[in-house]
Design a protein around this nucleic acid. Structure first.
Length: 701
RNA sequence: GCGCGCUUAGCUCAGUGGUAGAGCGACUCGUUUACACCGAGUAGGUCCGGGGUUCGAUACCUCGAGCGCGCACCA
């Protein structure tokens, strides 16, 4: 044996052996593997290379899968790739921008084709990277989120939800990104603190405070708090105001959302351009008067301000009001939070548009609401979140749920299976036969389809896989997509299949750099997992990502840490090399164990018990550390050292005992280390001084 | 505003109702054939602060401070 583990040469060979064995596929595992254990892989976005976060999920999921496979479970780890709707659209938009092109000038079919090719190319790269990271997933079941079966399931769900009254198309106020020219769900809104002028302006006899004077042309009422004595006499009356484009009459209404302590206690109500005002408008049946268009400019209802951008119009309106004596005062540094696009930071424009919404909190007849189904599943313990505290976060979010806008005005996604003709709506994958129906031009929020990933990939409802592997055992994913994805999977899974989609949810945190900085391209601290694996070995990277990584918490990684586990890889290699080379196969003497031998073997059993229990309880960081410490500082530093002389001794029975004990401890360590460090352990396993034996990968734990 | 966390050795973090541990880093010594990608050893902590429960708290409760995060219709 060489004195180093040559990971660059050996890793690819081992992966090929694993893949060729067929054992990644649960159907090809030995028949003794009966009870299933399933993880559906969160499909990585097919719009770029894998990053260190992906390496983390591969590490954790692969270690769970390998552990369970060795424990005799019929393990399925189903891989996939995500078309990642809006996210990919944004990436592709940037690519187009570099090429001095723009998606709004490219025909839909052509754009689709280009994006298809782009994502397929990325997929290939990604899948090979998953292999390099040692992922023992079943490539025969590899699925893309735009595969026909996924689209079919998604359309069926949409249709069924519509029938059940869980979906509606409504003119509601939505979050419009002027740059990306699409609406976003509430989750995709990022609120940022900002300082803006707060203008106190005269509305007839009243004065009110606003940060958006430019929307005044869309005002259709003035509101005060019903309990506010100052304004009681105005409630229900019409007052005359000066609008800058003529005089107008406006009704004063009372609504409890108005905070009497803010500003003057009076607000202007602009139902078309403010979420709160929209709701007030609904309650009081106010006219929705749109004065801002999708282009982010004021429209023809605004007289001289027509065509101006919002920011410009705001200044001009304020100036003009000042000229006319309508501006009472301005607070220049008013702090408030502004809704922005989570991708580009553009201030979102609340606009009223017809969109499809999922009813989250209202129950269809005789059934529970989507929210209640999910809340019950978690509260009852049918689904467990790891760490447990995430359940509180989950429930808190569920409490504040609102209806979910699933329409997106982009090209890249699954088309909404809805058809319109005059005032009629038809829902279904195919257009009705009669002429004149036009399909909804929008696509679905990507999370609507990925929310169905667990049962869609397993071919619900009739597939054999669905019957064998659903509900799945573990959903391992980032804590940052608990709401985006996990919550939706729980709700949609329960709705569609009547069963929970998974029993456990393990949530990992972010991988940060050694200075605890978030990793980003702009900071230049990106760690390429494949690059590090190339230098230090995949096993080292995997250990570095496992040790010290608690569920739900961020973790720090540094080159030093990875190097440390590369050294550990070398340690394993050399300790094994010593045990193997000093093992005398010809020695056919019955071993006579000493007290110390028995104590060592007993300790080994204790370690095994502890590691097993840690793995069962998802305490991977702890299991990894225990093994590291035991192998290095007990086995290598102590046990091997004290046995060196016995291996040369004349007492053959004692010599036999020493070499047998060392070999046994080594074998058990290799097994336990395998889920964490699959490559080096598999390679050593093949070199053990024994009759031909199978792969470590399916060795019994 | 509501909610969730974190605070332990220089750094990254474990951990337990009986006054503390690891890895990395620092320092000292060691070129003993498995391994210098090594070994032996040393230094370093009022376990954020106050109060409480307890025979005993770093650990449990409570208040507070600092930091981080999530949710929310602040006009």
């Amino acid at each position: 044996m060489e004195s180093r583990f040559d990971h660059q040469a050996i890793e690819p060979k081992i992966y090929r052996r694993w893949e060729k064995s067929g054992f990644f596929n649960p159907d090809k595992l030995p028949v003794t593997h009966k009870k299933s254990f399933t993880i559906i892989m969160p499909p990585p976005n097919a719009n770029g290379a894998l990053h260190i976060g992906h390496a983390l999920f591969v590490t954790l999921q692969d270690l769970m899968i390998r552990f369970q496979r060795m424990r005799g479970r019929k393990t399925l780890w189903l891989p996939g790739a995500d078309h990642a709707g809006f996210e990919t659209q944004v990436v592709f938009d940037k690519k187009l921008e570099k090429e001095k092109r723009n998606r709004f000038q490219i025909p839909r079919d052509k754009l689709w084709q280009e994006m298809w090719e782009f994502t397929q190319a990325n997929r290939k790269i990604m899948e090979n990277q998953l292999r390099e990271l040692g992922a023992s997933c079943d490539w025969s079941r590899n699925t893309f989120t735009l595969d026909p079966k996924i689209i079919k399931t998604t359309h069926e769900t949409f249709t069924q939800m519509h029938k059940d009254g869980l979906l509606y198309r409504g003119e509601r106020i939505v979050n419009w990104c002027v740059k990306h020219q699409t609406t976003l769900s509430d989750l995709e809104v990022k609120y940022v603190e900002r300082e803006d002028p707060l203008y106190y302006i005269k509305y007839g006899p009243l004065t009110l405070a606003t940060v958006r004077p430019e929307t005044k042309f869309g005002d259709t009422a003035i509101a005060v708090n019903p309990k506010d004595k100052r304004y009681k006499k105005y409630i229900g009356k019409e007052i005359e105001i000066e609008t800058l484009i003529g005089k107008a009459k406006m009704k004063v209404i009372a609504d409890a959302v108005v905070d009497p302590h803010f500003g003057t206690g009076v607000i202007k109500v602009t139902p078309a351009h403010d979420p709160t005002d929209f709701e007030i408008g609904q309650r009081h049946k106010l006219e929705i008067r749109e004065v801002i268009g999708k282009d982010g400019r004021l429209n023809e209802k605004t007289g001289p301000y027509t065509g101006m951008k919002i920011s410009e119009a705001r200044q001009r309106v304020a100036e003009d009001m000042k000229k006319q004596g309508l501006l009472v005062k301005t607070d220049s540094n008013y702090k408030h939070s502004v809704a922005t696009c989570y991708k580009c930071g553009t201030t979102l424009e609340p606009l009223v548009m017809p969109q499809w919404f999922v009813r989250m909190t209202e129950a269809p007849k005789g059934k529970k609401s989507l929210r209640d189904m999910a809340v019950d599943a978690v509260k009852s313990g049918k689904i467990e979140l790891i760490p447990k505290r995430m359940e509180k976060v989950f429930l808190h979010w569920m409490k504040n749920l609102r209806d979910w806008n699933i329409s997106r005005q982009i090209v890249w996604g699954i088309k909404i299976p809805a058809w319109y003709r005059r005032d009629e709506i038809y829902v279904g994958a195919e257009a009705p036969r009669e002429a004149g129906w036009k399909q909804d031009p929008d696509v679905l929020d990507t999370w609507f389809s990925s929310g169905q990933w667990p049962y869609a990939t397993l071919n619900y409802p009739k597939g054999k896989d669905y019957k064998t592997f659903y509900p799945t055992d573990m959903m391992e994913t980032g804590a940052d997509i608990l709401f985006f994805w996990v919550a939706r999977m729980i709700m949609l899974g329960l709705y569609r299949t009547g069963k929970i989609p998974f029993r456990n949810v393990y949530l990992h945190g972010l991988v940060r750099d050694k200075d605890w900085q978030k990793i980003s391209k702009s900071k230049g601290n990106v760690i390429d997992p494949l690059g590090v694996a190339e230098i230090y070995g995949t096993d080292a990277l995997r250990m570095a990502l496992t040790v010290g990584n608690m569920p739900g918490s961020d973790t720090a990684i540094s080159e030093d840490k990875i190097r440390g586990y590369r050294n550990f890889t070398t340690k394993i290699w050399n300790a094994s090399r010593f045990v193997i080379s000093s093992y005398d196969k010809k020695l056919k003497v019955r071993p006579r164990y000493t007290k110390a031998d028995r104590a060592h073997l007993k300790k080994l059993q204790e370690i095994k018990k502890q590691v097993t229990s840690d793995l069962e309880k998802f305490r991977f960081h702890h299991a990894a550390e225990t093994l590291y410490h035991y192998f290095w500082h007990t086995f290598a530093d102590k046990i091997i050292e004290v046995n060196k002389s016995r291996l040369q001794g004349d007492d053959l029975a004692d010599r036999a005992a020493a070499q047998a004990a060392l070999l046994e401890i080594l074998e058990e360590n290799l097994k336990m280390l395998h889920p964490f460090m699959p490559y080096v352990t598999e390679e050593i396993w093949a070199r053990l001084p024994h009759k031909p034996r199978g792969m470590l990968m399916i060795e019994k734990w």
